[in-house]
Design a protein around this nucleic acid. Structure first.
Lengths: 253, 253
DNA sequence: TCTTTACATTGACGTTGCGTAAAGGTGTAT
DNA sequence: ATACACCTTTACGCAACGTCAATGTAAAGA
């Protein structure tokens, strides 16, 4: 099968300009040039373009891609396996970001403050340079009242009914949690009702619900001491109990 | 807390140049300028930078980010929730890509060929333009022997022992599968042994093993007619049976 | 006090991966 | 013959900074 620029561009979902550019920088030369100087691509070029796009999707620069695909020792599947590893890494990064967003939402909704440093977690890959320790103390300074005020402001702006519903749910979650805690059984009826109420409460601030996210948040209640303190205030161990109940509710592990 | 350019840049993991640029384009102005014309950032700027980086991570352009964060009606948590949705979308896209990579690896290892069109799945979001139908027939042309030859070439280059091990395992998987199929029980001893052998076989081509990926591949054996054909050749229903066994083996659902 | 060193400033040009004309040749259908 | 969709090269434009360069300033040690 032979393709002109446009045919190949349609096949691959790239622009003709891109193909000409790839020719220009020597990353993908056409198989031959016909009598009217048209670029004609063949099977090998289609394969090569696929490889190029794979790596491009990763964010690999075109010069590096060139090295990869023009290397005589180029092993397609080996490169793909490496590629796969990088994609998984990228997904982990994304997960970290999502977790941070969840945390930020949950914390601001609760009027709890984050340290400046904490705010940037998930962005920085791991620039754990010495200066961080240097500024650590200053960085760990909390916000003060301003953020809480902002949060209250936002609350005021919410429709009154929504607000009522949420606070009602919140107290219900708390009450049911402590009642369930006394039964000692996270799989029991009361504990599962707590988990369900918690889900309802969550749905007020989440646009879409997923079991995974719910379970993840539950784990955070145990991992983050500020949450633990909140739930354990009246009843030590309540945060952990809530997590267990939610894990069962969401069918995790 | 007040920060100079460098302090803030270290905190947030960006360059000082970036901060100056953000000042230049008016997306993040310092709280004040001191007597030596140094930029001094305060608490509000730290928060704002966090928002900016959130959106930047998403691939949102700086002018759009400016609109978002400078809007007087800007609601932080609402924006975060939307942000979260987009992140989830992005992750789904990534998952699709990973699946495509897995598929490509599996297919090339198996010496099975992909149509040109199929190769670009996952790249093209949905350029379902009419011209596709036009070129559909040509596109659906299969590779021919060339790819198989390449694959064989690669096989030759593999260490002989590895190759022997893999082919031995491959036949073992097949043999055990058909034996297990006769028992009719995907949870039975033989079926689970098949799943384990299949895992071992996989580990020759995967750098890292995960149950999720294993289960995903198993599902693919049923979804992709070429795989189904391969496994069902001697024994119709074998592909589905293998999937069920692997699901149980990996503890899925 | 002097000097070094680390940090700040404003230009201004370079880079990547193309988009987008502009100005023109080609092929094929009517 | 002319319309039309396709192809060509040349060349400037863009985002989001990186990277000099040339220069001023703050903090700390000799």
């Amino acid at each position: 099968m032979e393709y002109t620029v446009q045919k190949l561009s349609r096949l691959a979902g790239v622009s003709t300009r891109t193909l000409r550019y790839y020719d220009e920088i020597g990353i993908l030369k056409p198989a031959r040039i016909n009598s009217s100087r048209y670029r004609i691509y063949g099977q090998a070029e289609v394969d090569r373009l696929q490889q190029i796009l794979f790596y491009r999707e990763l964010g690999v620069g075109l010069p590096s891609i060139k090295d990869i695909v023009t290397a005589p020792s180029f092993d397609g599947t080996k490169a793909l396996r490496e590629h796969r590893e990088k994609l998984l890494e990228k997904r982990e990064q994304l997960d970290a970001l999502i977790a941070n967003v969840d945390k930020t939402i949950a914390l601001t909704e609760g009027g709890i403050t984050m340290s400046d440093k904490e705010k940037f977690e998930g962005f920085k890959q791991k620039l754990v340079d010495d200066n961080e320790a240097k500024y650590g103390k200053e960085i760990r300074e909390k916000y003060g009242d301003e953020t809480v005020n902002k949060s209250n402001q936002k609350m005021k702006e919410m429709a009154q009914e929504q607000y009522d519903e949420m606070t009602k749910l919140a107290t219900e979650v708390n009450d049911t949690l402590y009642a369930a805690f006394k039964t000692g059984d996270p799989a029991g009826e009361l504990a599962q009702k707590t988990a369900d109420l918690h889900r309802q409460w969550l749905c007020h601030s989440w646009d879409s619900y997923s079991k995974e996210a719910h379970a993840g948040l539950a784990q955070m209640y145990v991992d983050d001491p500020r949450f633990t303190a909140y739930y354990d205030e009246k009843q030590p161990g309540a945060a952990e109990f809530l997590r267990d109940a939610i894990f069962i509710y969401t069918g995790k592990k």
